[in-house]
Design a protein around this nucleic acid. Structure first.
Lengths: 275, 275
DNA sequence: CGGAGTGGTTCCATTATTCGGAACTCGGTT
DNA sequence: AACCGAGTTCCGAATAATGGAACCACTCCG
């Protein structure tokens, strides 16, 4: 059993790692508030929570006192607190590729004239950690900090394709396949087949699989020994270009990926041991 | 005693709200990791922590299992985890002015050709929640998320000036005056005098008080009833312009502040009751 | 080669915290 | 006036956290 799995799995054999200790439960409440995406009343929280009233009440009290939630006294609603924003800024700076990659992304975006994404794998999903807009930005779902599915985005597939077998199995097991567009691949077999192709050619396409009209070509960012650090993509829309036209940027993307990798390895993600 | 103070103070009379319950302690550990600003070894953490080895160990284990920390198995280091980034994105979207203000900031920046900041008050300090650069408009909290002092920044003073008396007293009491530059105002009396002037003229200057060479003109964002939601500023450097030149932008800034306020009140910060 | 030192991990009896059912308070409604 | 539901407080029982000490795996000496 490898380390990632060990940490993620933790505890006994039970499925969910969350919610065990007191802090786990508190964080679960925090997540509940987050998923509402808006200020939320105590009662609403109670409705979706597995905790009894008194217990939940104490949790929100504690979280509020700690600055992880804020309470609007007038509207009687809770929202995520500013302490989170502060923490996240630190997280973004220390444990993402973004600070290292920023400059390279800018250059790539300027060179190809399209939007560029930088993403990392967070358990089973894709976390966009940075984004550089093209001259005229297209409205689309992704934004730094957002998460998306791994099995139907360019960056997601690019990373999956180069995961070691065992990790890949775990991650694929965690995907909940959903048909976002007519092009979404929702069979595990089809996905595995495509990942093989990606492994061969070294990059991945998104053929409007996640959002209609949005296409991209993506490439993993890997260390010399092959460990996957993240992925980057050049994204555009069918109204503006085609996959064939995007494919000409592959060499530029590859160069960017390599540059980021080299800098990252030196800087923060040293690669002493193969997986 | 008003609501903010009540919540912040909480618990018994003891000074620090943090570190009381188990979750408080866990969050304290999280903060420790954050302040390192880099991947950190267990031992380093132990050195700055008030907890005994076994206890601290359990905390980092828990936090790692919960995804708030990540553990680099090779280098044996802990960093802030991705779950934090996800939460923070939600926090940023739901409880900051940024999503509402974004478009207005872009327009203002384009119009005046300078960098524009959006900030909110977080207890005693200024939290920058968004920033639009003069040349390349880069959204997202790469820069946002930073905190600064309230008493010697344009946005800070702009907000302080329009705080209700009682809150102002609390916040001023929490300032730790430090002379960043020769121009920094470090006397409470001088600060209060300047705040009065700001209240009269409706906007604040930063005369290289926080960073040498950096000047700005800032204005609060307030509801109709006068409640302070945040502040915005147009920032430049002495090498490029002067305060007098920046002052001509005041009408544009005022218009932007008003536009943001109107939208914010409708959208998320309704203002049913005066302070 | 043995032994002391360093950094990290596990055990487990003790102790402090959390849990949560029930009772209560406070606006607003019938 | 009685009722109702959302929100808040209490307190004995149940549970989880605590941390000293032992342990493990290395490494660095003499």
């Amino acid at each position: 059993m490898d380390s990632a799995a060990k940490i993620a799995g933790a505890k006994d054999g039970s499925g969910s790692a969350s919610g065990a200790g007191t802090v786990g439960k508190a964080l679960e409440v925090l997540d509940q508030v987050a998923t509402f995406g808006r200020p939320v009343r105590f009662g609403e929280l109670l409705a979706v929570s597995r905790f009894p009233k008194a217990t939940l009440y104490r949790f929100v009290q504690t979280l509020t006192a700690e600055g992880m939630l804020t309470f609007d006294i007038e509207r009687q609603t809770y929202s995520l607190g500013v302490r989170l924003v502060r923490l996240a800024h630190a997280a973004w700076e220390t444990s993402s590729l973004a600070p290292v990659a920023r400059q390279h992304l800018d250059e790539l975006s300027a060179r190809v004239g399209e939007t560029v994404h930088l993403a990392q794998l967070d358990h089973a999903s894709v976390l966009y950690v940075d984004k550089v807009n093209a001259r005229e930005p297209l409205p689309m779902y992704s934004q730094a900090g957002k998460v998306g599915p791994a099995y139907c985005t360019g960056v997601g597939k690019a990373m999956l394709a180069f995961l070691p077998q065992r990790e890949l199995d775990v991650v694929i097991g965690q995907q909940s396949f959903h048909r976002f567009t007519p092009n979404t691949v929702i069979s595990e077999f089809a996905l595995r087949t495509e990942l093989e192709a990606i492994r061969d050619q070294g990059f991945a396409f998104d053929r409007e699989e996640h959002e209609p009209g949005i296409i991209c070509v993506a490439m993993p960012i890997r260390t010399e020994r092959g460990r996957v650090l993240g992925a980057l993509s050049v994204t555009s829309s069918t109204s503006r270009t085609t996959l064939q036209a995007l494919e000409v940027h592959v060499p530029a993307i590859r160069a960017t990926a390599r540059a980021i990798s080299e800098e990252a390895v030196q800087w923060r993600f040293p690669d002493t041991v193969p997986i």
